[in-house]
Write a protein that binds this DNA or RNA. Structure first.
Length: 340
RNA sequence: GGGUAGGUUGAGCAGGUGGUGAGCUCCGCUGACUGUAGAUCAGCCGUCUUUCGACUGUGGGGGUUCGAUUCCCUCCCUGCCCA
């Protein structure tokens, strides 16, 4: 899922997303409730109609903002009080209100409100956030008022195997439509993430529900996570890094602002069929980024989203035909090296 | 020709009225980014040095002085005003 926090995947139109092969995108409860507000979007026909996207939408609950806006919120057992990053006004989020907002937005998948903390925090804090996430999960499920909306629960527990196991038991024991793994890709090592995913996979066993690894990932992360049973991802990286000039290719990452590309007539990635690669050169991209032309952001985003979704397609196919290791040896390895 | 304001590291500036000018913004170079407070942020950006540090540098030349970006002489260049 490309990330469209504020009812837009930055720099891309819904048409661009379809062309890139996007099937589902992510929106954000916290941001959209602040602006333009959930009630306004509901009045305008819901998030799909509002942003002109007819595919599925998953809305994050605001749980990540508990983590990323740590200086602007206070958490208690009942919920979270945010000081708006836009105007300083106060906003109260409870599991029930987060579900209500997502109901108003009309997303296809709503996320339960969770409490994400840095896995490096003292164990007592990780436990507290996890237990709170479990209580909020039950309240979120109970608060869902739309039968047409799926609800996913979120596993927490940092990088502690024992806590992750108990979180899987708590969340998978509830009647969620999908299981999300939260609290990763927030500073822990690749090895810790891999180990944690293995613990979760083992604990989930044959549970048939979709498994969604939240906030991941980088190209290298996809290999780690797909191999450990993850079905669904969301990540800002493809679009965020694109806006700063970094593009992803089968040969690794390239920074289009680098002087070396000013005279490079070739496409970003010769194997890519996106609009940017079909019609434009690296030299053109390098120029657009230097000139801060708006087209730079769109072309780089079109490419990264297309390439990323294509990589996921190739990963899926490789599981069927047994070529996963070969793909990892080529593309996966290209992203383990330092950037070119 | 007369007057006046200037000439500082790629560009634009700050500072400096005798006691250590490497400071800012652009440009440029490189890096970072993971459920988006992000078209953002960080480092570097005279020379040598990995670093520490050393050296050079205020238009040119000359002078005064222990010491000159500063004071004096002279020349060059630029803007503006007058003729």
């Amino acid at each position: 899922m490309p990330v469209g926090t504020q009812a837009t995947v930055k720099a891309l139109t819904p048409g661009d997303l379809h062309a890139a092969g996007a099937q589902m995108i992510l929106g954000n409860t916290y941001h959209l409730n602040l602006r333009p507000t959930a009630e306004r979007i509901a009045k305008l026909g819901g998030l799909h109609r509002f942003m002109g996207w007819d595919g599925p939408i998953l809305t994050d609950s605001g749980g990540f903002q508990v983590f990323s806006l740590a200086d602007l919120r206070r958490v208690d057992d009942d919920g979270v009080t945010f000081t708006s990053h836009l105007d300083g006004s106060t906003h109260r989020f409870t599991p029930e209100r987060a579900m209500e907002i997502q109901g108003l937005l009309g997303s296809d998948v709503a996320m339960a409100l969770d409490h994400l903390v840095d896995p490096g925090r003292p164990r007592a804090e990780v436990v507290e956030a996890m237990d709170r996430t479990h209580r909020w999960a039950e309240r979120s499920l109970a608060a869902c008022a739309r039968p047409d909306q799926a609800v996913f629960g979120i596993i927490q527990g940092g990088v502690d195997p024992e806590l992750r196991r108990s979180s899987v038991a708590a969340i998978a024991g509830l009647s969620f439509d999908g299981i999300a793994i939260g609290g990763l890709s927030v500073g822990e090592s690749k090895a810790e993430m891999a180990a944690t995913l293995e613990v979760v996979a083992e604990a989930l066993g044959a549970d048939p529900r979709p498994r969604y690894l939240m906030g991941v990932g980088s190209p290298a992360d996809f290999f780690i996570a797909v191999e450990r049973g993850i079905d669904l991802f969301d990540c800002v990286l493809p679009t965020r890094v694109a806006r700063t000039g970094q593009v992803w290719t089968d040969a690794g990452r390239l920074n289009m602002r680098n002087a070396a590309f000013l005279d490079d007539p070739g496409p970003i990635d010769p194997g890519c069929a996106c609009e940017a690669c079909r019609n434009h050169s690296r030299a053109y991209l390098a120029h657009l980024f230097r000139a801060r032309e708006l087209l730079a952001y769109r072309l780089a985003s079109v490419h990264n989203v297309t390439w990323t979704l294509e990589l996921l397609r190739r990963l899926r196919a490789s599981l069927a035909d047994g070529s996963f290791a070969d793909l990892a040896d080529v593309v996966g390895a290209a992203f383990k090296r330092p950037s070119s």
